[in-house]
C-alpha cells in the first residue's frame, strides 16, 4: 500500500510507437465488437439477414444482366437468317432457290430444310406426330437456314430486304431483331439494378445507422465515463465502426450464400431452357471477384453508416 507513486519498475520497456498503440487498440476493439455481436445472436442474426436480403436484390439483377449478356453473345455467334419459302413450292423448286443463294457472296452457308424434312423434325421434337399425321397436307414450308457473313444490323436488314424481294420467299426472319430486343431488356435490367442499388444503399444506411444509434444509447454510461477519463470521439466510435463493418460484411457474405443456393436451384432448369434454344449457354454464378465485391460493399456501407451515425450520437453525449 505504500510504494512510491512514481516508483517505476526497472524494466521500463522502450516507448511504443504510435503505430503499435493503434494496432493493439484496433485488435482489442475488433475482438470486443465481434464478441458483443455474438453475445446477442438473435438480434445480430436479424440485422444480418435484413442486410443480406437487401443486398440480394441488386445482386440478383446484376447477375440477370450478366447472364443476359452472355446469352446474347452466345446467340450472336449463331446469328442466322431463316427464310421461309412459299408453301406451294415443291422440293426441287426449293432446291433451286437454295442453289441460287449459294452463289451469293454475302452468305457463308445455306442449308435447306425441305418441307417433308421439316415435318419429320417437327413431329419428332414437339411430340405432335399424331396431330400432324391427321392433316391431309403438309402445312410446313421449306426453310432455308442462312448464315450471313456480316453481323452488322444495317447490312443484315439490307440482306433481309433483298431476300424478301425473291418471288419464292414468303417470310424472312432475322434473329437480329430478337437480339436487339434482348439487348434492350438487358439495358433495362441494368438500369433497374442500378436504381435499386441506390435505394438499397439508402435503406442500409438507415438500418445500420439505427442499429448503431441503439448500441450507443445502450452504452451511454460507459461513453460518459470514457469521455471523463480522456477518450476522444474517434476512440469511442471505433468499436461501433467495427460493429457496422462486421454487420455489413456478414450481410454481404450471407447474400453470396443465398445467391449460391439460388444458382444451384435454378441451374438445371436454365440448362433445359438453353437446350431449347440450341444454345450452349450456362447460367453464370457470381464470380469470386464479384462475391468479394459484394462482401466489401456490405462492409463498406456498414462502416460508413456507422461512421455517420456514431459521430452524430457520440458528440451528443456530454459528461
Amino acid at each position: 500500500m505504500t510504494r512510491g507513486p512514481h516508483a517505476r519498475a526497472r524494466h521500463t520497456r522502450p516507448q511504443p510507437s504510435a503505430m503499435d498503440k493503434l494496432l493493439w487498440q484496433h485488435r482489442a476493439v475488433a475482438r470486443d465488437s465481434l464478441q458483443r455481436l455474438l453475445r446477442s445472436p438473435v438480434a445480430t442474426a436479424i440485422t444480418v439477414s435484413v442486410i443480406a436480403i437487401a443486398l440480394l436484390l441488386p445482386a440478383l439483377l446484376f447477375l440477370l444482366q450478366q447472364n443476359l449478356g452472355s446469352g446474347i453473345a452466345e446467340l450472336d455467334r449463331s446469328a442466322r437468317i431463316s427464310v421461309y419459302l412459299e408453301t406451294g413450292l415443291s422440293d426441287s423448286e426449293a432446291e433451286e432457290v437454295s442453289n441460287y443463294l449459294q452463289t451469293w457472296d454475302s452468305l457463308l452457308s445455306v442449308e435447306l430444310v425441305s418441307s417433308s424434312q421439316a415435318l419429320a423434325d417437327f413431329s419428332e421434337n414437339a411430340g405432335l406426330a399424331g396431330v400432324l399425321a391427321s392433316l391431309a397436307e403438309n402445312p410446313l414450308p421449306a426453310t432455308l437456314l442462312l448464315i450471313p457473313r456480316t453481323s452488322d444490323l444495317a447490312d443484315l436488314e439490307a440482306l433481309q430486304a433483298e431476300l424478301e424481294s425473291l418471288p419464292e420467299v414468303a417470310v424472312v426472319e432475322l434473329d437480329r431483331t430478337w437480339i436487339a430486343r434482348l439487348q434492350a431488356i438487358r439495358n433495362f435490367v441494368s438500369l433497374l439494378g442500378r436504381a435499386l442499388l441506390l435505394f438499397v444503399l439508402l435503406g442500409l444506411f438507415a438500418i445500420i445507422g439505427n442499429t448503431i444509434r441503439l448500441a450507443i444509447e445502450n452504452r451511454r454510461q460507459e461513453i460518459r465515463v470514457q469521455k471523463l477519463v480522456g477518450a476522444t470521439d474517434a476512440y469511442i466510435a471505433r468499436p461501433f465502426l467495427y460493429t457496422g463493418f462486421l454487420l455489413g460484411s456478414a450481410g454481404g457474405l450471407v447474400a453470396c450464400l443465398l445467391l449460391l443456393v439460388l444458382w444451384l436451384l435454378l441451374g438445371q432448369s436454365s440448362r433445359e431452357l438453353a437446350a431449347l434454344y440450341n444454345n450452349g449457354f450456362e447460367l453464370a454464378n457470381l464470380s469470386l471477384v464479384s462475391a468479394i465485391g459484394l462482401v466489401l460493399l456490405g462492409g463498406g456501407t456498414g462502416w460508413l453508416s456507422a461512421l455517420i451515425s456514431s459521430y452524430r450520437n457520440i458528440a451528443a453525449i456530454d459528461p
Binding site: 500500500m1 504510435a18 493493439w24 482489442a28 477519463v229
Partner: peptide, 26 residues
C-alpha cells in the same frame, strides 16, 4: 485500466500499472 487503454498502453504494461495502482489503495 480504462485511462491506460485510452492512452494506448501495451496490455502488459497496462496490467502492471493497474496492479500497482490497486495495490496502493489496498
Amino acid at each position: 485500466a480504462l485511462p491506460l487503454q485510452i492512452a494506448g498502453f501495451h496490455p502488459q504494461e497496462t496490467r502492471r500499472r493497474v496492479r500497482a495502482a490497486l495495490d496502493k489503495v489496498g
